[in-house]
């Protein structure tokens, strides 16, 4: 069963949230979704860029009260 994991990287600056996501993606199974919480605006733009580059699926980017939620599905 695919799982969903929330990674709380609030307060960390670039590339902290991205590196945390990658650490967890390595442990995740194919089809799992990972949602990164970040207060770093640069990471909110950079993480989707990385997802596109390596070929996972970007589910969405939303902002709520200064916190970005970037959700990705591991595809390989």
């Amino acid at each position: 069963m695919p799982e969903k994991k929330v990674i709380d990287a609030r307060g960390s600056f670039c590339p902290g949230p991205l590196m945390e996501l990658i650490g967890w993606i390595k442990l995740a199974g194919i089809g799992d979704e990972l949602e990164v919480l970040s207060t770093d605006k640069g990471s909110a733009a950079d993480i989707p860029e990385w997802i596109r580059k390596v070929g996972h699926e970007l589910i969405g980017v939303t902002e709520e009260a200064g916190v970005w939620h970037v959700t990705v599905k591991k595809t390989k």
């Binding site: 590339p15 991205l18 590196m19 990385w50 580059k53 390596v54």
Partner: peptide, 11 residues
Amino acid sequence: AMLASVGAVSG
């Protein structure tokens, strides 16, 4: 360190 880490994880 940023260049090394982001560069490496981007393949």
